[in-house]
Amino acid sequence: MPNTTAPIARLDGVIKTYGRLTALDGADLQIRRGELLALLGPNGAGKTTAIALLLGLIRADSGKVELFGQDPQRIDARRRIGVMLQNAALPPTLRVNELLRLTASYYPSPRPLAETAELAGIGELLSRPYAKLSGGQQRSVQFALALCGRPELLFLDEPTVGMDIEIRHKLWAAIRQLIAEGCSVLLTTHYLEEAEALADRVCVMAHGRMIHEGMVEALRSRVSLKRIRCVSALDVELVRSWKHVTDVRRDNERLHVTTAEAEAVVRRLLDADAQLSELEVQRAGLAEAFTELTRDADQSSTTHQREAA
């Protein structure tokens, strides 16, 4: 097997419990070189535990955890990663350049400070004390700290929470540039739009397990639902009563219909309203796919419990 396709980080059948709570229940995860893997799942699915294991913050009860083929608790393995956690209150009185210099000192061959600042878009902030920055700027600084060591694998845990749209898009551009340089990224996010914009692969977790792993396109196509949009005067309740229609909603003169049988519903729409215009049909997005997947997992897990009881 060529080394390039071997995973650079992986969980293999990992179980982790906190007292009676099972956070991970046989979790498997592989991150390959140069890819962006989005780890998705509702709160409590086990994402944070999975990341904590890969960062060496906690130990697994059983199963295998590897970072560059080593135990993540070894500093050698961690010298090749960059980390941006969900919440980290950095020293408020230190200036941005001091924070960058400190974090860069942990790495064997860090990026020059100016390059890091440029990439993270914080060139203007270097001499400002951290406490004087806005929430979005603080997140940008944390992102800069994550990439300053020239990591081969970047952990980004909800990186864009608290960022406005402009800063968020800058961060996305920076992430794309890092991936182009060959860096791998493990991203967790609540914004499915973010996963859709950046990820090569997604891994969906629920109840401590991976319930789906695959390319973004493949996940989207698993969902049979389509979205129909058109300008029409038809009554919402009338359309809702039609066969195959899962949801209808009106947005001014525009009608939004969700259905598994787009062709049949479109035909009926056209028949019912001769004035209908601006017709569009789209495959449902990651958001719908995600909702459907996790709902299935919830159902199967409750059946499981019922069987066990």
Partner: peptide, 18 residues
């Protein structure tokens, strides 16, 4: 305070020398 604010967790994840 650093245990509370997550700074210690970040430092443990980073390759800060032990």
């Amino acid at each position: 305070i650093e245990r509370d604010g997550g700074l210690l967790t970040l430092k443990r994840a980073l390759p800060m020398p032990p």
